[in-house]
Structures are given as C-alpha cells and as structure tokens.
C-alpha cells in the first residue's frame, strides 16, 4: 500500500500531526536559548517537511530534502555550532523596541497573507486545471528528469557551475591564513 492510495481522511489526519510538528518545531528554532537544541529541532522540522512532500505526491523531492537538508545542511550547521561555541551565560534578554516592531510587522504580514489565501476563490481562478480529487501520478521522477534535460537545461547546468564555484569559494574562505616573517619581510602563509 503506497502513500498515494491512502484515503483522503487518513491523509488529513497525518497532515494535521505533521503541521503541529512543524509549527512547534519552528517556534523552538527561533526562541530557544541553547542553540544546539535549535539546530536539532531544525532537523526535526526538515524531516516533517519531507513527510509533507511525500503526502503531496512528491516522492523524489522528499528523498532529496532528507538527503540534502537533513544530511548535509543540518550537519554543517551543527559542525559550525560546535566550532564557534561560546557559552551563553543564561541571562534573558529584554525585548527591545526594535524587536517589538518586527514582531508586529511579521504578524501583520502573516495576517495579510492568510486573508489573501482564504478569500481567493481558487477553483474558478484555474478552472480547468484545478484538481480537488486525488489523481495518482506515478511518474514523478520521470517528469522531473524530462524537465531538467529539455525545458530547464540552462538553469540546471548553471546550477552545477554554481556548485563548483561554491566549493572552491568555501575552501578559499575557510583557509587559515597566518603571517610568517623571514629576512625582514612579512609574507602571508596559507595553510
């Protein structure tokens, strides 16, 4: 029994649990004091988002999300935390006036977006294309592969060049540079 042949009510229940997990996890990422807990909750949020993709018939994206976000980005963030760890001395910061203004603006933005989501009539905007019943798509990875080799070939190749440049750039930036002095001249020694 694959995920796409489950009934609509079971999918709604699973989505409810996943949404609660994402909401609480992301609150923990932003507001917890210890940053290691934030990073581990970020991994939990990424896994819940991957399960949401699985329910939305995007199985290749769910695999990619777990591989790249949980497996690479989250591990990288944890390494960064362990390397730059300064102990926080447990004092609670008072909320400044700037933080209050930002909170009000973010809540305002969220209210505007939710009014926009719930008041548009989605069915008649995309009248012939909108599917509310559940059609099954077994060809997810084949369609994505077709797109990235025919329609969207140029972004795909540029992305690979960008990743190569990122690799070289990261190693160059994170190198240790120290000054060495010999013969009364100062030179930069690259480690």
């Amino acid at each position: 029994m694959t995920i796409i042949t489950l009934s609509e009510s079971i999918k709604s229940n699973i989505l409810l649990f996943l949404e609660i997990g994402i909401v609480l996890g992301s609150l923990g990422v932003v507001f917890l004091r210890k940053i290691v807990y934030s990073a581990l909750l970020l991994g939990f949020v990424f896994i819940c988002i991957a399960l949401v993709y699985l329910i939305l018939n995007a199985d290749f994206l769910a695999t990619t999300q777990i591989l790249i976000y949980v497996g690479a980005v989250n591990v990288l963030i944890l390494f960064g935390i362990m390397l730059v760890n300064k102990p926080e001395y447990g004092f609670s910061q008072k909320q400044t006036i700037g933080e209050t203004i930002t909170l009000l603006m973010c809540i305002g933005l969220f209210v505007i977006l939710s009014i926009g989501i719930f008041s548009t009539v989605w069915e008649t905007s995309y009248s012939t294309l909108f599917q509310t019943e559940n059609k099954f798509n077994f060809n997810d990875i084949k369609l994505i592969g077709d797109h990235i080799l025919t329609d969207m070939l140029l972004p795909f190749e540029l992305l690979s060049i960008l990743l190569l440049i990122t690799l070289v750039g990261c190693i160059t930036i994170a190198q240790k540079n120290s000054l060495i002095v010999y013969d009364n001249t100062i030179n930069l020694k690259k480690d």
Partner: peptide, 10 residues
C-alpha cells in the same frame, strides 16, 4: 534546495 545548500556552506 541546491542553492540553499550552497549558500549555507558559504
């Protein structure tokens, strides 16, 4: 996803 991974590394 690919661009976000690259930017997190840099």
């Amino acid at each position: 996803i690919a661009i976000a991974a690259a930017e997190a590394a840099i």
